[in-house]
């Protein structure tokens, strides 16, 4: 092989390598880009049962008194948080478009101050986009002193456009301890 052709091969090797390394970095970035993309996708399609995390204003499209939807409330404590946390009422009947107010009870049963955060999720997932919270304790953190108890409010309505096949919604709150994350 003459010197000339050898150099040529080397150059084109370099070009191919550069392109491939670029693809490697692009795909590494793509993995991370999936994180915001996933959120946007779920936000638009309302697929994963996530609800609004900032308050919405009540949109008065009238109340559909011909339909009654049952809204159930359940709560769950993530591992390791020593709180009592439960809905004051377990379920409520609402007409789509009608504003309701319910309370959740929380008590810090430990001897230390703890900051908790409740993360909501609606089932069936597709209904997440139709469950509108006007006011919710889940928009912020709940700092509770040792032994402190509190009733926390949730004001919501079910969108009048809720698909007709959905007659029952379940709103589930999972309570996490985030003291360490808030401190830092």
């Amino acid at each position: 092989m003459s010197k000339g052709t050898e150099q040529q091969t080397d150059r084109s090797n370099g070009k191919v390598i550069k392109k491939l390394v670029l693809v490697v970095f692009a795909m590494f970035g793509f993995g991370f880009a999936l994180v915001p993309l996933y959120d946007v996708f779920c936000d638009i399609t309302g697929l994963n049962g996530k609800t609004n995390d900032v308050a919405v204003a009540y949109k008065n499209d009238g109340i559909d008194t011909t339909r009654t939807v049952k809204v159930q409330f359940i709560t769950r404590m993530a591992k390791g948080i020593p709180w009592q946390f439960e809905p004051v009422i377990n379920e409520i009947l609402v007409h789509p478009g009608e504003v309701k107010f319910v309370n959740f009870y929380a008590k810090n049963k430990s001897k230390r101050d703890i900051i908790g955060k409740a993360v909501p999720s609606v089932s069936p997932g597709i209904a997440g986009g139709y469950f509108q919270k006007i006011e919710c304790f889940c928009f912020t953190h709940q700092p509770l002193k040792a032994g402190e108890e509190v009733e926390m409010g949730l004001q919501f309505y079910v969108d009048i456009d809720l698909p007709s096949e959905i007659n029952t919604l379940t709103l589930s709150y999972t309570l996490y301890e985030i003291s360490a994350k808030v401190d830092s």
Binding site: L20, V23, V24, F25, A26, M27, F28, G29, F30, G31, F32, V35, A78, K117, V119, T174, Y176, E177, I178, A180, K181, S184
Partner: peptide, 29 residues
């Protein structure tokens, strides 16, 4: 070339979630 970097990315997220306080996969955050 297309997918090994994605694996590298996802294990990196695990690493930071576990040891550096990020919340890629943590609902609380």
């Amino acid at each position: 070339i297309a997918v090994m970097p994605v694996l590298a990315g996802v294990v990196t997220m695990l690493l930071t979630d576990t040891y550096f306080g990020t919340s890629f996969f943590d609902a609380a955050g």
